[in-house]
Design a protein around this nucleic acid. Sequence first.
RNA 1: GCGCCUGUAGCUCAGCUGGAUAGAGCAACGGAUUUCUAAUCCGUGGGUCAGGAGUUCGAAUCUCUUCAGGCGCGCCA
Length: 580
Amino acid sequence: MIQTINEQIDKFLSSLPEINNSQIISIKERSATTLTDDLKKGHATSNVCMIAASILKQNPKDLAVKLASIMEKSEKYENVESAGPGFINVTLKREDFVSTIKQINDNPKEFGTSKDGENKSVQIEFVSANPTGPLHVGHGRGAAYGDAIGRILSSCGFRVEKEYYINDAGRQIDILTASVYVRIHQDSFKDFFPKNAYKGSYIEDIAKAFKKINSTKSIRDIHLYTAQLPEDDEKEIDALVFRIKDFDSQWSDIKDFALNSVLETIKEDLKLFNVSFDHWFYESSLGDMADKNSKISLAIETLKSKKLAFEEKGAIWLDTSESGDDKNRVLIREDERPTYFASDVAYHKNKIDRGFDKLINVWGADHHGYIKRIEASISGLGFNKDKLDVQLVQFANLFKDGKKVKMSTRSGDFYSLKDLIQDIGTDAARFYYLSKQADQHLDFDLNLATSDSKENMFYYIQYAHARIFSLLGKYKNSNTNMPSSPDSIINGSYKKCDKLIHEISRYPSILKRSSLSLHPHLIIFYLKDLAHTFHSFYNDNPVLTESEENLDSIILCLDAVKSVIANGFELLGIEPMEKM
RNA sequence: GCGCCUGUAGCUCAGCUGGAUAGAGCAACGGAUUUCUAAUCCGUGGGUCAGGAGUUCGAAUCUCUUCAGGCGCGCCA
C-alpha cells in the first residue's frame, strides 16, 4: 500500500512545473512514507512535501494541500489530508488496512522477512574466546548479539555464515597445557602451582580425564622443572612451559587433549545458549613462518612485496600510517615469532579470499584500537576495507543480589555462562543481553530477570504471547476450524482491534531497520510496544463473550499478533512461552 | 596527551536518513478484578534532552566547542 502511495507521489513530483530530474531524485532520497505513530494521524504519512519545499523553495503547506487533493480524488484511500507543517496523512480503505491480518495468517513465518540481501553473503565472526576455559558471562553478550544479527540478516535474505576463530596457536594455549600438566603430575610437584596458570577446577577435571585414558609416568627429578624459576609471574609460567616442552614428549598429546576438552565444553555451553556456528576456524591452520607456503607466510610476503611491511630493529612491521593508525605495528617479533596481529592479517585475508561480500567482526569494545590496523592490513593486501564491518560489544556488568559478578578466566573465580543459564535460563539471558544497543554499557540485574515484578520486560512480552495462546486454545475447544475472514473488522463494525492491526503492520519496517543498523534491540522495544497494545486491548475487551462475528475477527487478529511476537522472538533466539 | 564511545524525568533506558505536543517501565500518588491468566490495565505529577554556539522553514538527532564519565593507546591476546 505504501508503494501505491509512493507511486502517486512520484507522479505528483514529475508534474510540478520547473522541476528537474536531479531534484526529483534528491527529494525521493530524503523523504519517506511510513506508517504513522498514532492512528489519529491516519495510517500512513509522508513528509515529501516538506522536503520538496526546501529543495524547490516553495511553501510546504501549499504543496501538501495540492498533493492531498490529487490523492483524495483518486479514490484509492478512505481519506487523505495535509496536516501540520506539510505532512500528508493517508487513511487507508478498511480492506487495505486489514489485509495485514490475512497476509500474516496465510504465511506467518514469512511475515516481515524480505529479499533485501538476496545473493549477498555475509560472514559473522563472533565469540572467538580463547579456548582456555569455559565461556563466562563476559562472552555471553557477544554470543547473543552475533547470533541474533545472524538470524536477522538471514531473515532479510542474506546468505549468512557464522564462524568461531579458535586461537589455538599462541602462548595462552601453552599456559593452558602447562596448567593441566602440573595438575596431572601434582603428586610430583607437591604443593607447587604456577601463580599465573589457570586455576579453575576444570583444569583438574581435564587432568583426571587425561590420566584415565593415557599412561603417565611420574616425574623423577622434579627440580629440573621447578628449580630457579623466575620470580616474575609471567616469566615463571613461560619458563615452565619451555622446560616441559623440552623434557616431556607427552606435551603435544596433553596440549591436544586440553584444547579439545575445552572446545567441547565451549561447544556444549553455546548449544545450551542456543547459539550455533557454521564453521570453526583454527588459527593453527594458518601455518607458521617456517613454512614458506603457509597462509601466514604468504600474507606477510604480499605485504613485503608491496613495501608495506618492512624490517626495523630486527622485527617486521606493517606501515599503518595511511589508515590513520597512530603508529606502525609489529607483525613478526625480533625472535621471529609472529604476533597475534600477524595471524589476524592472514586470517582476514583468508576470509576475504573465501569470497564473502561482507565480513562482520563482533569484538569486545576494548579492542576498538585494533580496528585501524586491521583495516590497514586489508587495504594493504589490495582489498576494499569497507568489506569489513567491526561491531563493538561493550562489557555487561552483571549484578546478583546487588553485587557485581566476576569474570576472570585466569583466577578460576568466575561466573560462567553455564551458571547464568542455570540461574535464569537461556531465553531471559539472551533477552537482557540484547535489550540495549550492543556498543553501550549494560547493567544486567539477574534478580530482575527472574522476578515477577512489573519491571521485568521479558515476562511482560512472554505474557502477551501466553495469553493469546490460551485464548486461541479456548476458541479451538468450541470451534473445529479457525475463522475464515475478519469480516466485522473489514466492514468497520468492530474497530477495537485497529491499534493492534496498525502495530503489527509496523513489524516489517522494524525488522528492516534492525537489519540495516545491526541493532537487535529495536525488535525488543517493538515487541514491548506490541505487548502493551495487546495487554491494553485484552483488559478492556472480554473476547470470548463477543458476538460470533466479532469473535471471529478478533481471533484472527490475535492469531496474527501472536505470530508477530513469535517471529520477533525467533530472531532473538528466544522461545515464546505458551503458558506461564 | 591522542583516539573511540557516552551524557534525555528521582532510577533504568527508547527516540529512525533532522519533522507534528520529547516517550516507556520502575519509583510516588489515585483508581480498575461477579468476566477469557492482575507477571495486567487506566489516570496524575515529574524534562533548560550536560552547557554554549552554528547550519536549517524545523535540531534530542547534523557541525564546532566547553564540561563530566567510560574504554583503548605492548615485539600481550
